[in-house]
Design a protein around this nucleic acid. Sequence first.
DNA 1: ATTTGCTATGAAACCCGTTCCACATTCTAG
DNA 2: CTAGAATGTGGAACGGGTTTCATAGCAAAT
Lengths: 317, 317
Amino acid sequence: MATIRDIAKASGYSIATVSRAINHSGYVSAKAQQAIERVVAELDYAPNAIAQDLSAGVTHTIGVVLPHSNHPYFTQLLNGIMNAAFDSGYKITILPSGWQRSLELEYLEQLRRKAFDAMIFTSHGIPLKELAAYQRYGRIVICEDPKDTDLPAAYSDREVAYRAAFSWLQQKQVTHIGFLLSRAQEHISATSYATLRAFRAIYGRTPGKEWIISGINTYEDGYHAAEKFHQHQIEPEYIFSNGDDVAVGVRQYYIQQHLPVPGLVGQENQLTSKLLNIPTIDHHFVQIGAAAFELATHPEATPDREKFQSDFILRGI
Amino acid sequence: MATIRDIAKASGYSIATVSRAINHSGYVSAKAQQAIERVVAELDYAPNAIAQDLSAGVTHTIGVVLPHSNHPYFTQLLNGIMNAAFDSGYKITILPSGWQRSLELEYLEQLRRKAFDAMIFTSHGIPLKELAAYQRYGRIVICEDPKDTDLPAAYSDREVAYRAAFSWLQQKQVTHIGFLLSRAQEHISATSYATLRAFRAIYGRTPGKEWIISGINTYEDGYHAAEKFHQHQIEPEYIFSNGDDVAVGVRQYYIQQHLPVPGLVGQENQLTSKLLNIPTIDHHFVQIGAAAFELATHPEATPDREKFQSDFILRGI
DNA sequence: ATTTGCTATGAAACCCGTTCCACATTCTAG
DNA sequence: CTAGAATGTGGAACGGGTTTCATAGCAAAT
């Protein structure tokens, strides 16, 4: 491949002039411009992107940490991020983590090594405090409540919709509710925490442990969780699920066992809940993804927190 | 940020020795190693990834062109690619294209400029011939039949399953079949072409134009396509859909209109078809994605074509 | 006639690593 | 004891751009 020095040599101008000509940064005579352009075309020259990045000290790349690529939460966030990135000149690099500490640290290390200009954590295994410490190496945006850290964040006020949902259930005089929550390590799962807090706010009590199953994310998880409820003779009137697919998995279990299907509340407002007429919660993750991208690429953004209202979508009354 | 020259200065060794110490490439005394490591720790030094890339002439990045991020075809391919990339040391950059020629060319330009080591086109708008011409700038892998080009490819032999499906329909004495195909520009849509060819092979005839609707990819598209059939008094016994979600959209339309739902055949073997007991076709795109990644990262691979058998999954007989 | 202010150009420094190669030691085998 | 091998080290080139700064030519302003 031809380099800028080749162009300089072949055109008879200096590399400085060639650089100026190529970047149209002025101070190039019409004659020089033409001569250089001809040589560029002849030698099929294109400036090396890595060299430019090195020189500029930026990569125009945002690393997006995705623990789990099948869950709609992440798909929706990613879509939002990509929409926003579309003609921003930024590239998006996907960093699958599976919530593994070692992987997350490895990606943060890449940030330290300037492989990315910024990072977006759609979710995280390592504590926020620790994450915040890496901000000195580059901008880090998270997609949940940043708590007492100073991390920029775009996230959903999940409790708004959760409370609406529980109020609705309370009005229907539903008392026995099963909870299928996300990750097992409850202290780091904002979702699970918000769910239970909203429940407590409306119902004034805490659900018994046997009514909660954690680590539930997929259709299959939902199916097995329902099985577990059944085996332990836990019979919820309603099951509050972490995701529409989860709800559908639950439903599938009861149908296959020829048991009455309990009421369901899903999350993420996906095709499946629409299809089966299941009430759901929309956290507007596509919007949140877009907001996260903006926060990542505009370090001077103020405020650097964006909280979105979640909506409870009533269906199949 | 500290650079390798800072470390050299502070430790009293040369940058060559520092580089060797950091990369453990030998010829460094224990004393030097220790001294250098201490300074590295003190100055919080980490080698700049861009500089390394420039020096090495590689980016360890694969660009993946995705026209459409919601369709399962792309999601599955991407998952396959990411699985394979996982601990390969490669990063995956997503390049949304919407099948737009201008965008695809822009991404190819980036390849030319060495922003990626290789590219995977999960689908493409520009002709294969043109794509093939860019191979001189880097490896380009496609996910369909490369035809008469020399592009490396991982793809599904769609016709195997299509024929199985049509044979099954023929045995059931189904004669009126509606087709919901993907892109409108039929000459570049391998899927649509394969579908119709398989039909012709089994049924010995070509479906009438009024039985084919193109540009159908989503649930909503399916819904509207069904509406169109209905409005034009086209009443298929079976509708062969481009994707499970499409099939579900079709079903939704007929149900909402209180019309009998025609038989359906989906594609991609997703949750939705499982749920509604709709026969479907599995093209194994996760595997294909993984294969595409391997082809992209092993330029010397032989053969550089991998064709996967598709499977017709019979359900709801 | 002199100063000021552009335009145009190129040498050289800079971004930050890796690696080649020359040179000095220190082993090791014959 | 000595030639040859292996270890340790650093200067300098290299990867391929951008940018600063000095210099020169030339026109407008004083």
